[in-house]
């Protein structure tokens, strides 16, 4: 039941990504192209997601625990630092170049389109490079 529910939740997410247009780089890039063929649709994706998630989280998080786990795992960092801002900024540059974000590209894998496969493969490489850089930084005495 635990894994079946996760599969269905992934499926709901993926259908949302597919029908909203987040799966489609042409639509994503037109959303960012205010000075050109602007397609404001994706603002409605964020609107729809928050319209459900804001009240939904409020209802869920007053419970003692989730259905299949002993407790809720919420990020506890409050730190707003250079890493957060520059990492997110770098992500936005890549998103603006390719038109895929991680949540758009993972469901897109299911279409077997070579662009989706290439994007996810290079994103994984980027995650590995970041992991290597972080491990190096953790070993150098300055950052300790």
């Amino acid at each position: 039941m635990r894994l079946l529910s996760a599969l269905l939740i992934g499926l709901i997410f993926g259908i949302g990504i597919a029908t909203s247009g987040m799966i489609n780089p042409a639509k994503v890039l037109n959303f960012f192209d205010i000075a050109g063929n602007w397609d404001p649709s994706l603002a409605f994706v964020m609107g729809g997601a928050l319209a459900v998630a804001i009240p939904g989280y409020r209802l869920v998080l007053v419970r003692k625990a989730p259905r299949f786990e002993p407790k809720f795992q919420l990020p506890d960092t409050k730190l707003i630092d250079v890493k957060l801002v520059s990492g997110s900024g770098l992500f936005g540059i890549g998103w603006g170049i390719a038109g895929f974000c991680p949540g758009g590209a993972l469901p897109a894998l299911g279409t077997l389109r070579p662009e989706a496969l290439a994007f996810v493969a290079s994103m994984i490489l980027g995650l590995f490079i970041a992991r290597g850089l972080k491990a190096l930084a953790a070993r150098s005495p300055q950052s300790a």
Binding site: G87, S88, G89, L90, F91, G92, I93, G94, W95, G96, I97, A98, G99, F100, C101, P102, A105, A118, F119, V120, A121, S122, M123, I124, L125, G126, L127, F128, I129, A130
Partner: peptide, 9 residues
């Protein structure tokens, strides 16, 4: 773009 997204996120 994929590389930058992976690093950035």
């Amino acid at each position: 773009g994929g590389l930058l997204v992976g690093l950035g996120v």
